[in-house]
Design a protein around this nucleic acid. Structure first.
Lengths: 261, 261
DNA sequence: AAACCTAGTTTCAACTATTGAAACAGCAGC
DNA sequence: GCTGCTGTTTCAATAGTTGAAACTAGGTTT
């Protein structure tokens, strides 16, 4: 589950893919090599294979590599049949309309939080520009509530991978304080982000759980300390929990989907 | 370049990934096995590795696999740094507003057309739900114009992979007729889809070319035979070509981008 | 309850692909 | 022409992949 911990050739190749994606801009072979643990010819072959496969795109004019279009197609499939995202959409719309604050839908991707949807209350959706973003699990509302409901074995692996970087004075910076926080979350059924990631930004979050208590994802409402307090946001808990239950219910019962034209 | 033609373990694993994505719904191991050329344990290991890597998601409750969330993250990167999609966005908005018909932006993915963006003139964008779709290259406007400007070696490989399935009476069903059509497209600088893919649906398409004449993608305006004729749509050619040139210019000059919050 | 499936998982020796040091090619600049 | 840099190919040692067969876990039939 630890992604880089030996999955053979495939794992290594995908690590290279991640690496290229992480640059955030098209890169030359040399740049990848400089950051890579692989020797030159090995890396070269990986890059070639990935390019062949359409997972990387090569620009011959500039001699640069970037994540390939095949990923967009695969992500479309991932998106369409993710039980969560398409099902949650109408619920998010309703929630967003009601609370008038930023709403996030997230899932755990390895040890990170991956945002699937965002509602800004004002304007409509612009998918790729915000879905697909990642964030830390240990200092975001959605991250913590998902961790709170993760089984021990997996939780330990995930915690071992957290950086515990101190973003703000309020960031939890140790596994111990995080574990306490997770217990508190389970006890009350929802969690907060009390300016732990960004100063002035607070949020309340709830997990979306299967019947068996496994976290499918999480839901959050974000606001600022100017406009809101944690106490004030706590009033939203019942509404959030109900929305989470509704999404979980739909996810459990409405599994088969097909494409729209 | 032919994707499945031997790229070692990595290629095989990615073929499995495609296969799972192609189902369009979460599948059990047995279902994949039934469609797979790989023996049981081999396939099993691929599926395990991909799941480990987050490229597939496993639902333990239902024992099903589906494309994983990691793809969404990678696609986000692909999207953000695709030279084409983010740059083209404002141009598509302008074009869409002006013509009042459906506008498509597409790229070649292996031998297929992959739609990156769509503007319906009416409502705003809903990304994942339409971007990421694929279509045939030999009988769509965008597909044909991109092929028309593809160098011979690659073109031959792509044509060899076309199904030439006859969607409508007007579909081109042979490599020869397609090649003639491609010559005609280069001669006039733009192409049509004359009800070749769907009856009643027509379109005009132009390539987006680099300085060196390599096709980055294509742009099209689609309409129906009720409302429009090919002759009528031909009037849009100069506008489309100008938009394509503008996009190509921006793509060449504005290469570095970073994330938005 | 025993016997019997079926779907999923593990084992292990044969085999084949991967690996990376080294050597090579292409190309800009001096 | 030489020099330095980036990207590409070679090839023998190595390490990972392969898949028949055997096994386990659940459920179903006799």
């Amino acid at each position: 589950m630890s992604r880089d911990h030996e999955d053979g050739t495939v794992g290594k190749a995908l690590a290279v893919l991640d690496q290229v994606a992480a640059f955030g801009h098209p890169v030359r072979f040399g740049e990848i090599l400089a950051q890579s643990a692989f020797p030159k010819p090995t890396l070269y072959r990986f890059v070639q294979t990935l390019t062949n496969q359409g997972m990387l795109a090569y620009n011959p004019d500039r001699q640069t590599y970037s994540p390939g279009v095949r990923l967009v197609r695969l992500a479309h499939a991932a998106w369409a049949q993710s039980t969560l995202a398409p099902i949650a959409r109408p619920h998010l719309d309703a929630l967003s309309a009601e609370v008038g604050e930023t709403v996030h839908l997230a899932q755990l991707d390895n040890a990170q939080v991956l945002y699937l949807e965002k509602r800004n209350a004002v304007q409509p959706v612009q998918m790729f520009s915000q879905a697909g973003k990642v964030g830390p699990a240990y200092c975001t509302g959605v991250g913590k509530v998902m961790l709170a409901y993760t089984e021990d074995a997996q939780l330990n692996r995930i915690i071992a991978q957290q950086s515990f970087h101190q973003f703000t004075p309020k960031t939890l910076t140790s596994a111990e304080s995080l574990m306490e926080e997770l217990d508190a979350i389970v006890a009350r059924g929802y969690g907060f982000d009390d300016e732990e990631h960004e100063p002035g930004i607070i949020c309340i979050a709830v997990p979306i759980l299967t019947e068996k208590g496994r976290p499918l994802g999480a839901l959050s409402v974000t606001s600022t300390t100017d406009r809101q307090t944690l106490k004030g946001m706590e009033k939203l808990a019942p509404l959030l929990q109900q929305t989470a239950r509704d999404i979980a219910y739909d996810a459990a019962n409405w599994h088969i989907r097909d494409e729209d034209s």
